[in-house]
Amino acid sequence: MDRPIRVLVAKPGLDGHDRGAKVIARALRDAGMEVIYTGLRQTPEQIVAAAIQEDVDVVAMSILSGAHNHLFPRVVNLLKEEGVDDVLIIGGGVIPEDDIPFLLESGIEAIFTPGTSTKDVIEFIKNNLKR
């Protein structure tokens, strides 16, 4: 691919913890990716609209508030409804081990929890792009 990987970094829901999202955004930029950062308090609908207009390769969401089981799958489903099937969807934040299988099952392709090395995230994205 002779173009930079484009990533939407988004914070769904009312959660105001944005440090992790910003750390990830900066790390991806430093890895040569174009990061579209939409800021806090995005609805799943807004995230999907932005992902479509920006034609991103990756949707990367961060939640620390506990609302992940509701919001992450909702974004996956809305993207599906729009017929978007070539976007890699990943998530991260404070997410209990027990919830991870359900999230993976519902279409989030990887979950990164506190202590994640940004290197692993970059590696995962590069190895799992869908186009």
Binding site: D30, G32, V35, Y37
Partner: peptide, 12 residues
């Protein structure tokens, strides 16, 4: 110019 990456934040 260093990484070729960018943070595009206008949508905020």
């Amino acid at each position: 110019p260093f990484s070729g990456g960018a943070i595009l934040g206008d949508r905020i």
